[in-house]
Write a protein that binds this DNA or RNA. Structure first.
Length: 562
DNA sequence: CGTCTTTGACCTGCGC
DNA sequence: GCGCAGGTCAAAGACG
């Protein structure tokens, strides 16, 4: 086992199936066979492919990896242990697992849950070596067996208790996450208003002051979310129920005086919205920004479009300049007035690559299969909105993320934040050398709620679960080659000289801020990670929109696709 | 008959 | 102001 450059990439030998063990273990157990040791006497696993493990380093998450060929039937021996919190390779004590160990038949069935939430308990006798020698001696074997049985029984009871505690902690984590989202969105709103106030005309400034006052009043009501997300939240649900008879949700059929319906329409069509309600330019600017935040997915697929769990209706098709393949426009039809749209277009150079660009946030409950994209796009939208914060904030966040998300790195190229619209690009086209496919994690409290949505809204009829990888038809399955948060990019603030000629300072600043905001947000990280948690492999980053590829801090123009 | 797709027209923003 | 490109609308047709 090795750790690779502080990126959290574990290098493993996959010639032997791995066991991902929980951390409940105790020393002093019988070790019936030797394990390979490194020079420092620590157990080792020979290197092979890179196995990215995405963890939130701010949580004390530790993972042991067991090589199957190092494990006997009776005793499973931990051959390595990495502390993801510090990034250090811990003293790899020989540990004997208990029944809590999560044994999985292969890497492909490792779940994110296994990697992110674990409870740790070390009950280690003071002198492991003496225990080992005692066991190996065999003279007091019966006595040891009895003690072992007693310990085992105690451990089993402890395991049950810890499982319960773990569940409680998960619930708390979910609540904290929700609260954080709400606060974050409020902060985002305030920063938006500040930025707009700085650039607004005096008249607009006055309007902003009034708007802020109104917002303050609303804040006293306990709702602290940007306007669009308010509109797309429960209020939008109200619209959905009250206006469900409307056959065409995108038409301007909103009756006068119905502010919520009108705002939903506004978010859908900002041009009409400005005509309908020209008195609040700040709101519309913000809505437009939110609406324009995009998530682009590049995946290899022969299908006309990827299956992401949502229902879409095609409403247009255009020939885009520089691409012989037409661009199709779809809108979400799972609920009336849902503002989410997507564009589907094939890459000009490689027509096997399907580029799907999502825009907007769903205003309705989603099936688990659709949660991946929904979480990703909604989180991206909110985080990209945060990207408009000052560069100082972006710098702060980038440093923050550099400290915190490095272990979350994996090998896929994905991040983009660029003009004209802030965009996150998930490049899933890199052919995976290790096409691992995670199973969908079990439903849990940790999810990315709709940004700014009240708890009531985050509890739809179908409880949100961790996003499932949006799938392809079985015969034409897209494989994610890996996800890579733009960690090095943000942390280094584009230090490489090559970056300068191709990226104007303002653009770099924008990308930095957006990237920092995106990656510093644990929810977005979680959403993105979960959305493409089958990602493993590849090793480059892209900054799309600005047509850049960022690879190990080198920024090069991306002319592959239009 | 309802839903969805197709496709030309229209609208808007932007650069010149 | 004009042209271009991106995005959207909406009528017509296809399909089950």
């Amino acid at each position: 086992m090795d750790k690779s450059g502080g990126t959290g990439v574990l290098t493993l030998d996959t010639s032997a199936p791995l066991f991902l063990a929980s951390s409940l273990s105790y020393g002093g157990g019988a070790l019936k066979r030797k394990q390979p040791m490194d020079s420092s006497g620590h157990p080792t696993v020979s290197t092979g492919i890179e196995f990215p493990i995405c963890l939130n380093p701010r949580r004390d998450v530790r993972t042991m990896l067991l090589a199957k060929d190092e494990v006997s039937n009776d005793d499973r021996v931990a051959v390595g242990e990495v502390d993801f919190f510090s990034g250090e390779k811990k003293n790899s004590r020989s540990l004997v697992e208990t029944e809590l160990d999560l044994k999985v038949p292969s890497l492909s069935s490792i779940k994110k849950e296994d990697l992110t939430i674990q409870t740790r308990l070390h009950l280690q006798t003071p002198n492991t070596a003496s225990d080992r020698s005692t066991v190996d001696d065999g003279s007091s074997k019966n006595e040891d067996d009895k003690e072992g049985m007693n310990e085992l029984a105690a451990m089993q009871a402890e395991v049950a208790r810890m499982k319960e505690e773990n569940q409680k902690l998960r619930a708390v984590l979910g609540q904290v996450t929700t609260s954080y989202n709400s606060l974050h969105m409020h902060l985002t709103t305030l920063m938006q208003q500040r930025n707009q106030r700085e650039t607004a005309t005096p008249q607009a400034h006055e309007a902003m002051v009034e708007e802020k006052t109104d917002a303050k009043d609303r804040d006293h009501g306990g709702v602290l979310v940007p306007r669009q997300f308010m509109d797309l939240g429960p209020a939008a649900d109200d619209e959905q129920t009250s206006d469900s008879s409307t056959a065409s949700p995108d038409r301007s059929a909103s009756p006068p005086g119905n502010a919520e319906v009108g705002s939903a329409e506004q978010s859908w069509n900002p041009y009409k919205a400005q005509k309908l309600n020209p008195t609040k330019p700040a709101d519309h600017a913000q809505e437009a920004t939110m609406r324009k935040a995009r998530v682009s997915v590049r995946a290899r697929s022969e299908a006309p479009m990827i299956t992401d769990g949502c229902q879409w209706r095609k409403y247009g098709q255009k020939m885009a300049k520089g691409n012989p393949c037409p661009r199709a426009y779809y809108r979400c039809t799972m609920a009336a007035g849902c503002p989410v749209r997507k564009q589907v277009q094939r890459c000009a150079d490689d027509r096997s690559i399907l580029i799907t660009t999502y825009e907007g946030t769903h205003n309705h409950p989603l099936p688990p299969a659709a949660m991946a994209m929904a979480s990703t796009t909604s989180a991206a939208a909110s985080m990209l909105l945060s990207g408009s914060m000052s560069s100082t904030d972006g710098l702060m966040n980038s440093n923050f993320l550099a400290r915190t998300i490095l272990p979350c790195s994996s090998n896929m190229a994905t991040i983009s934040a660029s003009a004209p619209f802030p965009t996150v690009t998930l490049d899933l086209t890199q052919n995976p050398t290790n096409p691992l496919q995670y199973q969908r994690p079990p439903a849990g409290p940790f999810h990315v709620p709709y940004p700014g949505a009240a708890p009531a809204f985050s509890a739809p009829s179908q409880p949100p679960s961790l996003p499932q990888v949006f799938g392809q038809t079985p015969h034409n399955q897209s494989t994610f080659s890996g996800l890579q948060m733009s960690l090095e990019m943000a942390a280094a603030q584009f230090p490489h000289p090559k970056a300068q000629p191709v990226m104007p300072p303002s653009m770099a600043e924008t990308v930095n801020a957006a990237t920092a905001a995106i990656t510093a947000d644990p929810n977005f990280t979680a959403a993105l990670t979960a959305a493409i948690k089958s990602i493993i492999g590849g090793n480059h980053q892209t900054v799309n929109g600005s047509n850049l590829i960022i690879n190990n801090n080198n920024i090069i123009p991306d002319k592959s696709c239009s």
